[in-house]
Each structure stands twice: as structure tokens, then as C-alpha cells.
Write a protein that binds this DNA or RNA. Structure first.
Lengths: 195, 195
DNA sequence: CTTTTAAAAGAACAAACGTTCAGATAATCT
DNA sequence: AGATTATCTGAACGTTTGTTCTTTTAAAAG
């Protein structure tokens, strides 16, 4: 046998990335073999190399795409009139964006150590750019006298960690709706950095 | 060659666990081979099986020991006069305990998916027991009218995530001392769950 | 000093790994 | 319809994997 009926790169390509995403998130990059990914797609292992030069690139592309979408969607948000409104928008955006992409988030946070040094540097840069957006909001609020944080950098990391932690327990269709979760977290964030 | 000079299980045993801990934290459980661990200890791979029945048990024992120490040390803390004092003690304890064990914490949070189902269940139970201690503090404070959280369970997860996030950036000997970090986080936690 | 035991070496095992490649067949183009 | 191209199979490659086992030697016990 060779080329199978209905085979097309526009179909198989996305399926390869989807399978890699799901399997990496579930079992971890190092624990997943190319043959497992291929089986999930319904193809032999060799065929994967029509869609990626190697396993490492598969991981890297998933991460880069995820972070670039994160930055793009955040940049597309309308500006806020003041730091408090900006922080609320950031909080709600972060929770919503991440809750909708549990696998991508999991990989982006857990598989950093499986990136080659050059790939790691590039991903870190993207992540840093996102964190800077929150840090700028906090700094602006501090200058405006509406926030009170002892250390802007530490507060940035604390808020991000708290918000990203939503993904460890939140499941859509559970006890709380996404909107309720956003409201609860915004309440805590507002108080934590407020006067 | 066979048994080497100075070889003793009281020495090699801890070295095996230490090597596994460091390598698992650095590269991930699945990416580390028994031969790498053996090389770090200065021994052949076969010799490791004098100290662990298999690789999985090595990971499980590291996690279990870590969580049992966490629970034991927390239980050894003196009782607090009120919920606010209890929360401050929990906050400071959590930060201090985790900052001193970066490798153990990393493994306990990242390698859950590499545990066998039975081992996973046991570890999850221990983690849950620890989270319950914080939840009880929050519930007591809520009943006493000194805390104001919209959802106790969510607040528990939020505080834990925020505090554990310290490990992603904190390094002893850096810009901030452990005491300063404790104070900054306690400030944010207090405000986040306060009235 | 002799015997026993504990600890390690080192070879061996089948299985699985990422990746390559020649050949085959479906889809597309002319 | 025929030629070309895109896509996949299936076998093969050299390595590495976790684990077992026999043999050897140091340490401990008598």
C-alpha cells in the first residue's frame, strides 16, 4: 500500500498537530513516541515527517503558535480608560483565554525543559512579553496611586500564577461558569493589589 | 570488577535518590534513563536495583516522602489564636518550605502524569490533605467574619497557586530575602481574602 | 583467619526509540 | 487519457531503553 484514499496535507497536517497536542499534554513530550502520534492520526510513523522535520519542531511549533495567539488576542483588546479597568480586562482575558486552551497551556508551562536551548530562548521571549503587559498595568496603577504593591515584579508573578492556576481545577460545564470564575478571581486580584 | 571499595548501602542509597531527584527535576522523569542516574552516582545501571524495585518506585518514593514531610512539618507548627494568624503562618510556612525544596516541588507538580494510577491516587490524597488545611483556615475566618471570599474552594486554589508560584522565580541569594518574599506575599494574601 | 553476606560489575535481553528511504498509489494537472 | 506530483506504506537503520542475571569482590560476622 501507499497513498491512501482521501489523503490530503490540508487534512492530515492539522490532525498531526492536534494529536501531538493532546498526547503531549496527557503524557508529556518525552513519554510520547512518534508512533503513538501516528497511530492517533491513523497513519504510519514515517508519514509524520511530511509535516514536521522532527519531533522537537512539533513541540516548538505548538508552543510558539500558542504564545503568538495569546499575544495577538491580547493586543486586539480595546484600550482601557484607567489602570483598574485595564487590570480587570487583563484578569478576565487571561482566565478566559487559558481556560479555553487547557492542553496548550499545560504544554507551554510543562515542556519548557524539553526545548532545545535556541527554541527555549525564543519561547521565553514571548512569555516575557506577555508578562510585561501585566507589569506595565501594575506600574501605571502604582504611579496613579490606585494600586498598592510592595514590589511590582513580584506582584506580576503572583497574579499570573494565581490566574494560571485556574487551569488546574476548572472544567467547563462544572459547578461554576467561566463568568463566575472571572468575577471571583477579579475580586481577589483587585483586593490583593488594591489600597 | 564487582563490589567496589567503600561501597555501602547507607551511602549509595541516599545518593541514588539524590541523583534521581536532581535529574528528574532538571530533565523530567521520562527523559532520564536509569543509566544517567547510575552515572551520576558513579555506579553501573544494574546496581540501582539494589535500592529500588524499578524506575517508577523511585519517582513515587520521592513524591511521597516530599508530601509526607510537608504534612508532618505543617502539623508540627504551633496552633494559631485566630484565623488571620493561622493564615499568616500557613502563608509563610508554605513559601519557606517550598523555596527550600525546589526540586521536590517541581517533581511533585510536574510528574503526576508519570505515576501509575494507584500511585497517583495515593499522592493525590496527600496533596488534598494539605489543601484541606488551608481550606479549613479560610472557612473558619469566613465564619468568624474576618475573611470575605466569594467561594472558599476557589480561594483555596487561588492562594495555593499564588504561593507555589514563588518557586518559578525565587532563588536564595537573589534580590529579595526569603523573609521579604514572605512579607510581600502575606500582604497580598491578607488583602485578597480580607474584608 | 575463615566464613558469610552485601554490593557492585558487566554482559545480556527483547522491546521501543527517532528517523530515513525506496517503492507504491491516490490526487491533480495537462 | 496520460503524465506528474503529493502522500503514505513498510521495511530498515543504529541506539537506547528498563530490567535481569551471573560472577566477582569488599565488608562484616564468627
Amino acid at each position: 500500500m501507499a497513498r491512501t484514499a482521501g489523503s490530503h496535507s490540508d487534512i492530515t497536517g492539522p490532525r498531526v498537530r492536534a494529536a501531538a497536542l493532546q498526547l503531549f499534554a496527557r503524557h508529556g513530550y518525552a513519554a510520547v513516541s512518534m508512533r503513538q502520534i501516528a497511530r492517533e492520526v491513523g497513519v504510519q510513523a514515517g508519514a509524520l515527517y511530511n509535516y514536521t522535520p522532527d519531533k522537537q519542531s512539533l513541540l516548538f511549533d505548538l508552543m510558539r503558535t500558542h504564545l503568538e495567539e495569546l499575544l495577538a488576542e491580547h493586543a486586539a483588546m480595546p484600550g482601557a480608560p484607567d489602570p483598574v479597568a485595564a487590570l480587570e480586562r487583563f484578569t478576565r482575558f487571561h482566565i478566559r483565554f487559558h481556560a479555553r486552551r487547557p492542553d496548550e497551556v499545560f504544554i507551554a508551562y510543562m515542556e519548557l525543559r524539553n526545548l532545545s536551548p535556541e527554541n527555549f530562548a525564543e519561547i521565553e521571549l514571548l512569555r516575557r512579553r506577555y508578562e510585561d503587559e501585566l507589569e506595565n498595568i501594575l506600574r501605571a496603577g502604582l504611579a496613579a496611586g490606585v494600586f498598592a504593591v510592595a514590589d511590582t515584579k513580584v506582584a506580576t508573578m503572583a497574579v499570573i500564577a494565581m490566574l494560571t492556576g485556574v487551569n488546574t481545577w476548572f472544567r467547563e460545564g462544572g459547578r461554576l461558569s467561566l463568568n463566575e470564575v472571572e468575577r471571583i478571581y477579579w475580586d481577589m486580584v483587585r483586593k490583593a493589589v488594591g489600597l
